[in-house]
Amino acid sequence: MSPLLTVAIVATLACYGVAMALAAARLMRGPTAEDRVLALDFMYIVGMLAVLALGIRYASGMLFEAALLIALAGFVSSAALAKFLLRGEVIE
């Protein structure tokens, strides 16, 4: 791991951290429930990207599978929350 790559990964993770903090601010403040669902969906995506970047940092292939699982869990949770907002129940 060269110094250039280490610095780049730290900068990328810092960007992801700030992005996640801003999304959390929108999650807390969000005037409507849809805003909160959207912010949660965004946080899932940013977390998945951070896991991928950490997979490059540790040169590990296992973190890729964790990122894939986070992506699928984010899809299911966002779809369920949107369905709940639309109908008032998840499975009818």
Binding site: A8, I9, A11, L13, C15, A19, M20, V46
Partner: peptide, 12 residues
């Protein structure tokens, strides 16, 4: 990696 971080920051 840095391009991806900046794009995510702009999105947030």
């Amino acid at each position: 990696l840095v391009a991806s971080g900046l794009a995510t920051l702009v999105a947030a």
